[in-house]
Computed example of a mutant assay.
Amino acid sequence: MLRDHDVVEPSDHDYGKLYFLTDRFERHTDTFEEITAEVDAE
């Protein structure tokens, strides 16, 4: 689901594949933090 929504992208290795945050997610980190702060407050 995270790959489908362009939040993470996999490395090129099949064994022990790592996932990294995409540039798109990095640009919207502030929005993500605002949303998680509101969810935590509830």
Rank of each mutant, 00 (worst) to 15 (best):
M1D: 11
M1N: 08
M1Q: 09
L2A: 10
R3H: 03
R3A: 08
R3Y: 01
D4V: 01
D4C: 03
D4R: 15
D4M: 08
H5P: 00
H5G: 01
H5E: 06
D6M: 02
V8N: 04
E9S: 08
E9L: 08
P10C: 08
P10L: 06
S11R: 07
S11I: 05
D12H: 04
D12I: 01
H13K: 09
H13D: 06
D14W: 01
D14I: 05
Y15S: 11
G16I: 02
G16L: 08
G16Y: 01
G16E: 04
K17C: 10
L18E: 11
F20D: 00
L21E: 01
T22P: 02
T22L: 02
D23H: 04
F25W: 11
R27S: 10
R27I: 00
H28Q: 13
H28Y: 09
H28K: 12
T29Q: 12
T29P: 00
D30Q: 09
D30G: 11
T31E: 15
T31M: 07
F32R: 10
F32H: 11
F32M: 14
E33W: 09
E33N: 14
E33C: 06
E34F: 02
E34C: 04
I35L: 15
I35V: 15
T36R: 14
T36I: 11
A37M: 05
E38G: 07
E38C: 03
V39K: 12
V39L: 15
D40V: 06
D40S: 12
D40A: 15
A41R: 15
A41N: 13
A41S: 15
E42H: 14
E42Y: 13
